[in-house]
């Protein structure tokens, strides 16, 4: 019984590791900041979800389970907030995306191009 749980846990952890790694590759491969942020978003959502789920199976019904849940909630709440702050900081300073079809007119209004 325990070994079945261990195997599921192993699968979840390995899948989480894979997701995180793919996100890391994306952050390196994609062409500009905003597209890279989408890749980083994988490592902020699917990665923690799978890894923490795998750890939860290891924890069983204990206080550690609650702490894992709190970590997941904190990450789910703060990661998009940090992404917003970063994206907005780039926007405020007039950072131009490399490739984009702009349907909002936001980047033309103010600020200067910025490397």
């Amino acid at each position: 019984m325990a070994s079945v749980i261990d195997m599921i846990s192993f699968a979840l952890l390995a899948a989480g590791g894979f997701c995180v790694f793919v996100g890391g590759v994306g952050v390196l491969r994609l062409p500009d900041l905003y597209t890279r942020m989408h890749a980083a978003s994988i490592t902020d959502t699917a990665g923690p979800l799978l890894v923490l789920a795998g750890l939860a199976l290891q924890a069983g019904w204990s206080l550690a389970l609650f702490k894992l849940a709190v970590i997941l909630v904190f990450l789910a709440v703060t990661a998009p907030t940090a992404a917003y702050a970063l994206g907005n900081a780039a926007l405020v300073s007039g950072y131009r995306p490399a490739v984009v079809s702009d349907e909002s007119g936001a980047t033309d209004s103010e600020g200067e191009g910025h490397a």
Binding site: V77, T78, T81, Y84, A85, N88
Partner: peptide, 8 residues
Amino acid sequence: HLIPRIVG
């Protein structure tokens, strides 16, 4: 900034 403010 609505999002950081409410979350914070």
